[in-house]
Amino acid sequence: MAYTFSRDDIAYLASPAGAAALAEVGDLALTPASLLKDLERLRKSFGDHAPALVETVRLRRRAAAKLDGAGEWLLTDDALQQATPTAVARHRAHRLAGRTVHDITCSIGAELAELSRVCPAVIGSDLDDIRLAMAAHNLGARKVLLAKADALVPCSSADVVIADPARRADGKRTHDPAKLQPPLPNLLTAYAGRDLAVKCAPGLDFDKLGWAGEVEVVSLDGAVREACLWSPGLAEAGVTRRATVLSSTADPWTLTDADPDEIPEREPGEWIIDPDGAVVRAGLVRHYAAKHGLWQLDPRIAYLTGDKVPEGVRGFRILDRMEFREKPLRAELHRRDCGPLEILARGVDIDPDALRNRLKLKGSQPHTLVVTRIGRTATVFLCATP
Rank of each mutant, 00 (worst) to 15 (best):
G109T: 07
F206A: 07
G222R: 08
G193V: 06
L204I: 13
G213K: 05
L139A: 06
G210N: 09
A158V: 04
N186T: 05
A190S: 11
R168I: 06
T189M: 07
L188S: 02
G124Y: 01
S125K: 00
R117K: 13
V118L: 09
L139T: 04
V118F: 11
R167N: 03
L145M: 13
D207R: 12
L209D: 03
L139R: 08
P182L: 11
V118A: 03
G140N: 03
S107M: 03
L188E: 06
G193M: 03
N186Q: 14
G222S: 09
L145Q: 14
K172Y: 14
I162W: 08
K148S: 14
G213M: 06
G222L: 08
A223V: 14
A166P: 05
A151P: 05
C119P: 00
K148G: 13
D205Q: 05
D195C: 09
L180T: 02
V153L: 15
T174Q: 14
H175M: 12
P177R: 07
A133I: 04
A141Y: 05
K208E: 11
E114K: 08
G171F: 15
C106N: 08
S116T: 07
A197Q: 02
G193W: 00
L180M: 08
D205K: 00
T174F: 11
C200E: 01
P185Y: 10
D129Y: 01
A169T: 10
P177A: 12
V218A: 03
S116V: 08
A110P: 03
P185R: 10
P154L: 11
D150R: 10
E114M: 12
K208M: 03
Q181L: 06
P183R: 07
L184E: 02
K172S: 14
R167P: 03
C155H: 15
R117W: 07
S157D: 15
G171S: 13
C106K: 04
G140Q: 05
S107C: 07
K143H: 13
I130E: 01
L112G: 02
T189Q: 12
L209S: 00
G222P: 07
G171V: 15
I130A: 03
N138W: 07
A136C: 04
V161R: 08
I108G: 00
H175Q: 13
L209R: 03
N138Y: 10
V198N: 01
D129R: 12
L146K: 11
A201W: 11
T105H: 07
P154T: 13
S219Y: 01
V160G: 10
V122H: 09
V215I: 14
T174S: 15
L146F: 11
T105G: 02
